[in-house]
Computed example of a mutant assay.
Amino acid sequence: MYALFDAAWESALDLGTFCGAERPRLDPVSRRVLRALGSGATDTAAAKELGMSVRTCRRRVAELLDTLDAGSRFQAGVRAGELGLGG
């Protein structure tokens, strides 16, 4: 139990950082795209699920990567989780 607590504590964000202004705000569509990324869906499957073209889906993913300052889809998911932006 102590090891679990220590691991959680080490990866926790400072409350000021979590609630701070640098936490990006995501619109509802961006949140849906983020959920689709988290599900591991391909661009084509995610676009179909979201009711948008593949090109628009890819553009929205690129915008999310930029907003979250992430270099990959995986990193974007991790960053979103750290910031409490998931689903």
Rank of each mutant, 00 (worst) to 15 (best):
M1Y: 06
A3G: 00
A3Y: 06
L4R: 11
L4H: 06
L4Q: 08
F5V: 11
F5I: 10
A7H: 11
A7Q: 14
A7D: 13
A7P: 02
A8G: 09
A8C: 10
A8S: 06
W9I: 00
E10M: 08
E10A: 15
E10K: 14
A12E: 13
L13A: 13
L13S: 11
D14S: 14
D14N: 15
D14M: 02
L15T: 13
G16R: 11
G16T: 09
G16V: 09
T17L: 12
F18N: 04
F18V: 11
G20W: 00
G20F: 03
A21C: 04
P24Y: 06
R25T: 15
L26N: 07
L26I: 12
D27M: 05
D27E: 13
P28K: 06
V29L: 11
R31M: 07
R31D: 03
R32Y: 03
R32W: 05
R32N: 08
V33D: 05
V33Y: 03
L34M: 06
L34V: 03
R35D: 10
R35L: 13
A36C: 14
L37R: 03
L37D: 03
G38V: 05
G38M: 08
S39V: 04
G40T: 05
G40Y: 04
A41K: 04
A41C: 02
T42G: 13
D43G: 09
D43T: 10
T44L: 14
T44N: 08
A45P: 00
A46R: 01
A46T: 00
A47P: 02
A47G: 00
K48V: 06
E49T: 14
L50T: 05
L50C: 04
L50Y: 05
L50W: 04
L50H: 06
G51S: 07
G51F: 05
G51H: 07
S53T: 15
S53K: 01
V54S: 09
R55K: 12
R55V: 12
R55F: 00
R55I: 07
T56H: 14
T56C: 12
T56A: 15
T56P: 05
T56I: 02
R58I: 01
R58W: 09
R59Y: 13
R59Q: 12
R59G: 01
R59V: 08
R60K: 15
R60M: 08
V61Q: 00
V61A: 01
V61D: 03
A62H: 07
A62L: 09
A62N: 11
A62I: 02
E63I: 00
E63V: 00
L65R: 13
L65M: 09
D66Y: 08
D66F: 09
T67L: 14
T67E: 07
L68F: 03
A70S: 14
G71D: 07
G71Y: 00
S72M: 08
S72Y: 10
S72C: 07
F74T: 12
F74H: 13
Q75L: 06
Q75N: 03
A76T: 10
A76Y: 07
G77I: 03
G77N: 01
V78I: 15
V78Q: 07
R79L: 02
R79I: 01
G81C: 01
E82I: 10
E82P: 00
E82R: 08
L83C: 05
